[in-house]
Write a protein that binds this DNA or RNA. Structure first.
Length: 294
RNA sequence: GGUUCAGUAGCUCAGUCGGCAGAGCACACGCCUGAAAAGCGUGGGGUCCGGGGAUCGACGCCCCGCUGAACCA
């Protein structure tokens, strides 16, 4: 039995999952989150507390040091292990849409050819790069914007490295086959979500986020870890590039934009059952419990 | 009280000689299978502070007023 709760940052999915796990003892939680995988990045990623982790078995947390670049493939491997060893139902708490889809729809990403990728990414003539992709894999090219260097380089990396078209590795993201796992989506209206985000960022600052960021430091953070909201802006502040107030405002703004981006990602998936929240989450809890009991 | 400067998209501002109203950010929407809290694209938005005048034609020139800033008293 596996259920997924999806939603944007600050939607309340973690606390809903805790409530559900308490109501159905034995349930284990899987945090599907590209940043909570980093050890020591606790406050800024709103990682479940030690107490929560003591009360309910959690997976998906603290899988890598901040100096490492984590990837989807590593997360799926971890998930498969967790699923095999789990003693009770799994409750997935997902903010990272790509990770969740890779897990549930069994994406099988082609391998890595990092030196090829580096070559393509440093190619100065982007138009020529795109033309090459159109030649090798017109189907992939049709789905990638001609200005998107990163995705073009990755597709070419796979075409050249594997000898097969990038588009031959799966149906793509717009295929939503039926799956066992029920997905429940949490949704707030934008104004309410904004105040929740502002409050959450203020709370993080009050809890010592700046100290956490300073104690890790930029040199001990990988490219990917440095992208984490809150960390990125406070690292810039520590480098003297912004005042603390400016940094906090930027965190709030970008977190809002991130939340909308998450919503747009999940919105596409027709299999998600949405629960519109006001301030009362009891309806969401009963929906989750119902799914767990089914 | 006087002088000067400013007032254009939600915000910060461009706008050449008077000739179809612009940018960045924000916002909305979409795409993306080994960086996804990343990357890429699309487009909706205007009482050009208000009023009057000269002109074929004004965001632009002239006059009056309003608001803000700086300086002088």
């Amino acid at each position: 039995m596996t259920i997924a709760i999806v939603g944007s940052t600050a939607s309340g999915k973690s606390s809903l999952a805790m409530a559900a796990a308490h109501a159905r003892p034995g349930t284990e939680i899987v945090a599907v989150d590209s940043m909570q995988v980093y050890r020591g990045m606790d406050i800024g990623t709103a990682k479940p507390t030690r107490q929560d982790q003591a009360d309910v078995t959690h997976h998906g947390l603290d899988l890598a040091d901040p100096i490492e670049d984590f990837t989807v493939v590593r997360f799926v491997e971890h998930y498969d292990q967790a699923r095999a060893g789990a003693k009770g139902p799994l409750l997935l708490v997902a903010g990272t849409g790509l990770y969740l889809r890779a897990m549930l729809d069994r994406f099988d990403p082609p391998g890595e050819w990092t030196d090829l990728r580096a070559t393509f990414e440093s190619e100065s003539d982007l138009a020529a790069l795109y033309a090459q992709l159109v030649q090798l894999d017109p189907r992939a090219a049709a789905k990638i914007d001609s200005g998107n260097r990163r995705r073009i380089a990755r597709a070419l990396e796979v075409c050249v490295g594997s000898g097969q078209p990038f588009s031959s590795f799966g149906p793509g993201m717009d295929a939503y086959p039926p799956i066992e796992t029920a997905q429940i989506g949490l949704r707030w209206n934008r104004d309410t979500l904004r105040t929740r985000i502002d409050q959450r960022v203020d709370d993080m600052m009050a809890s010592g986020l700046l100290r956490e960021v300073a104690s890790i430091g930029r040199v001990k953070m990988s490219r990917n870890a440095q992208q984490a909201l809150g960390y990125k802006e406070l690292l810039d502040h520590l480098d003297g590039q912004a005042t603390l107030d400016e940094a906090v405002e930027t965190i709030k703004l970008r977190t809002r934009q991130f939340a909308v981006k998450q919503e747009r990602w999940f919105r596409r998936d027709p299999r998600i059952e949405w629960v519109d929240l006001t301030e009362d989450s009891s309806e969401a809890l009963s929906v989750v419990l119902q799914a767990l009991d089914a």
